[in-house]
Amino acid sequence: MQPTARVASSTPLRRLAVHSTTTCAEQSVAYGKCIVATYTDVQKDSCKAEFEKFGACLREAVRVHAFLTCVQLL
């Protein structure tokens, strides 16, 4: 599936899927690596710093997407 085609599909969960795997791939990998490094003894918030960056990227991506949608509607 083409990433552009997926951005166009519009349910919120679809958008989250695209952003978490494509737009924020770098932060996603960093977070995943952190978990894999400690996965026999994962505690709450053991990769908090990495997830915060990932989460910030996701929120930014959703915001930009919303903005673009508005522009298209105009």
Partner: peptide, 12 residues
């Protein structure tokens, strides 16, 4: 949690 699971699935 879903986004985190997706990242972990990919890495693990």
């Amino acid at each position: 949690t879903l986004a985190a699971a997706s990242a972990i699935y990919q890495q693990l």
